[in-house]
Structures are given as structure tokens and as C-alpha cells.
Computed example of a mutant assay.
Amino acid sequence: MTDDRWCCNGNAESCRLCTDPNPPYPWICPGHDDTPENRAALVAPPVVSLQNRRAHVHNAITEGLSKAGDWVPLSVRVAATRAALAEVDAWHAAGDQP
């Protein structure tokens, strides 16, 4: 079977045109029409929601602690996530650029 998808590798979770936050199992992208609007959506920068941003920071903190061999309660990891986001927000508010 050949895969004629132009939008992704077939995984709905990695396809920027599959916008359903809970795609049906087995998470296969149905394929999308090759239109100028869809092409533009693929090259546009991704929209990062606050929830997504918080999850990325939380996952990085959890992974760092795990690699160090440290286990801390969830409440401490959440507090560390909030503190890290507050520092980043203050840094951006000061006008600093990455």
C-alpha cells in the first residue's frame, strides 16, 4: 500500500492539520487536501497554548529530576514549573530576547 499523504508521516499527533485534540485510535491522519490554505498552515509557526507551554516546562523539569535520580512529589514539581514560568515571563517582560 502506498501512502499518498503530503501533510505528514501518517500520525495524526504529528500532523499540524489534524486539529482534533483527541484523535480516534489508532491516531492515523486521514490525509488532507493539497490546497494553498493547507500549505500555508503547514509553514505558519505553531500556536503554543498556555497549557502546552506549561506542559513542556513541567516535562522538562520532571525529566531533569529523573535523570538526576531525584524523586520529588508532584506538588513540588508543579511549584517548580510555576516558578520557572514566572522567571521566563519576567525575562520577556523586561524586553530581553532569546
Rank of each mutant, 00 (worst) to 15 (best):
G69Y: 10
P98M: 14
S66M: 04
G64M: 06
R16Y: 14
G10D: 04
D70E: 11
V43A: 13
I61T: 00
C7V: 04
D3C: 09
V76G: 15
N11R: 13
M1L: 04
N11D: 06
D70F: 06
D20T: 05
L17G: 01
T81P: 01
G64I: 01
K67R: 13
G64W: 00
M1C: 02
T35I: 06
C8M: 11
Q51A: 01
A40E: 13
R16S: 07
P98K: 15
A86E: 10
P26W: 01
R54K: 08
A44Q: 05
G10H: 02
L65D: 05
L42K: 15
R5A: 02
E63I: 06
W6G: 02
V72C: 12
C15K: 05
T19P: 04
M1H: 09
C7R: 03
T2R: 15
C18V: 12
N22R: 09
D33C: 00
C18P: 03
A60C: 04
H58M: 06
D70S: 09
A12K: 03
N11M: 09
R82Q: 00
A86N: 09
A84G: 03
P45W: 02
V88M: 14
W91E: 08
N11C: 00
A80M: 14
P45E: 14
N59M: 06
G69L: 14
A68M: 12
H32D: 02
V47Y: 07
A60N: 10
L85D: 12
A94F: 01
P73E: 13
R82Y: 10
N9V: 10
W71L: 11
D20S: 11
V76P: 12
P45I: 05
R54C: 08
N59C: 10
W6D: 02
A60K: 14
A12V: 05
G64H: 00
I61W: 02
D4V: 14
P23F: 13
A84P: 02
A90N: 01
H56V: 09
E63T: 13
G10N: 14
P26H: 14
D70K: 11
L50E: 14
A80N: 09
H32A: 08
H32R: 05
D4N: 15
V43Q: 07
S49V: 01
V48A: 04
N38Y: 08
D4S: 07
D20W: 14
C29S: 12
A40S: 15
R54T: 10
T62V: 15
L65W: 13
P73T: 12
W71N: 11
A83D: 07
K67M: 07
C7Y: 03
D3F: 12
R39W: 09
A90F: 07
A55P: 00
R77G: 04
E37D: 06
R54M: 08
A80L: 13
P30K: 03
P30W: 09
P21H: 11
A44T: 03
E63D: 11
W27Y: 06
L74P: 00
G69I: 08
T35F: 10
G31T: 12
D89K: 07
C15I: 06
D3N: 15
N22K: 00
A55N: 05
T2P: 12
R16P: 15
A79C: 11
S75I: 15
V47E: 07
H92K: 11
A12I: 00
A68L: 08
V43I: 09
C18S: 02
N38D: 01
V57Y: 07
N22G: 06
Q51V: 07
R16D: 02
